[in-house]
Design a binder for these strands. Structure first.
Lengths: 254, 254
DNA sequence: TGGCGTCTGTGCGGTGACGCACGCTCAGCA
DNA sequence: TGCTGAGCGTGCGTCACCGCACAGACGCCA
């Protein structure tokens, strides 16, 4: 194909009908995301939407006292900047790069232009947004009910799903910030996992050795989110999605 | 006006241009929501969307062990069933009536038909959805960082905003279920508020006596959500929203 | 009017997470 | 080669919340 191969790494871009993709390609800019880069702060007007290929971005809520917690994780399955097409133009979250890598960006206005064609782009992004909502909701209950141990497992799995390989480059401090807990809490939870032979880690590099075990140690939240995401974004054969926009949704009523 | 006046009580319906509203009125059915009624369970196909007028519905996530936590509260400012137009058709949440009252319902297909006209309905509902997302996200961080005392205040305020008057008919047990905490925790928090003269309550009837004080005792989460909701849904003059759909969003780019 | 059930009040031990403090260890660099 | 600092390990007291258990209080209905 004549397209940049890495463009296919983002599931949303990959799922676009080739006609739409051809329209957008000239406007998609590959950008590098260094670790810790802030894509936007609460209230910022969004000038771009970003489609990660091999980077991971966390949506963080920051409290007045500086304490924060991530409410969702975005990787190659999604995009950053849903507020733009939801109509709000900005959000109250902060978007921070959690795993360095690359992403394609698209000017806000170009995305809106695409929506105005009432094409597949709208359907795709809305479905993704619903998956995102699921993740946020599950995060909320997880924060309420589950132990740090379980949440660490959930979080490792969510991150792992958005990368290739079985390694994560992140310090315990970073993870603690994401989960909104103490660093020591992560240290203890990570040590337990290491003792069980589930993960190995050293100075900012985490290797997952036994993924099935990790899944069983995680709270149900991971499975719930994954299941729902798979349901909403079954991008195995992108052509499956080449249906008309709203009328295309099966009319189950009656 | 010839329209049912109570239809105006729902902000979304009220904000519709009269042309759209005229189209929908014949299909809007007023239904009664008794306390505790379950509108849908996780995974249910949504046959209707509901526009509350004077009822309040909680979106709950239920864990495998039965423990639950509400992730957002929906009243006359919104609608129940966003999954329908997000494309998912169903959600993983349970919708439960938390304050008895009334709502208008609309058949799923009719809503989709309305979207296919690419009208204001889409813009309106998407903006609402973003407000909902904000609420979920804030709930997530609130669960992580704030005390039961603070969360109770937040929750009373959120509920109060969606009703007229300063009274809530709900038992401490119910509130505890919503917040995903022990009933005793609510008892203690409520007692503190009563001692301060902020609220009064007895056997399932809560009266807010000093709302400003309640707001100051609440965590920041209430204000954040309220501010964002007001920004996204400034339905003071519904005609303000009579703009073209996507192109109407001010082109801030450049 | 008496009884029953719902709603609320309170106590107690247990525990998970916090805040703080300090020590260790390894990579990278001068 | 030795220093420095980032990353990780660990202990200790404190606190919020939990689970359980039971007691009082009020409303409603027979």
């Amino acid at each position: 194909m004549s397209e940049t191969p890495s463009l296919q790494k983002n599931h949303l871009l990959a799922a676009l009908p080739s006609e739409v993709r051809r329209r957008l390609i000239p406007h998609l800019e590959l950008v590098s995301f260094p670790l810790g880069k802030v894509l936007y702060e609460p209230g910022d007007i969004l000038r771009y939407v970003y489609f990660p290929t091999d980077s991971i971005v966390s949506l963080l809520y920051v409290m007045e006292n500086g304490a924060a917690a991530d409410i969702s994780v975005v990787g190659n399955e999604g995009l950053i900047g849903v507020a733009l097409f939801m109509g709000g133009e900005s959000t109250s979250s902060r978007a921070v790069v959690q795993c360095a890598g690359y992403a394609y960006r698209l000017r806000a206005q170009l995305l809106k232009d695409e929506f105005n064609r009432h094409g597949e782009m709208l359907q795709l992004t809305l479905r993704y947004t619903q998956a995102l909502i699921t993740q946020m909701a599950q995060t909320a209950v997880c924060n309420r009910h589950h132990s740090i141990d379980q949440q660490l497992c959930r979080w490792l799995l969510l991150s792992l799903d958005r990368l290739s390989g079985n390694q994560l480059t992140m310090t315990q401090e970073l993870i603690a910030n994401m989960l909104g807990v103490r660093r020591e809490g992560i240290t203890e939870a990570a040590r337990k996992l290491q003792k069980l032979g589930v993960i190995d880690y050293s100075r900012g590099l985490i290797t997952v050795l036994d993924r099935p075990r990790l899944e069983s140690l995680s709270c149900e939240c991971y499975a719930v989110v994954k299941h729902e995401t798979d349901r909403l974004q079954p991008y195995v054969h992108p052509t499956h999605l080449s249906r008309p926009v709203y009328p295309g949704v099966a009319a189950h009523t009656q």
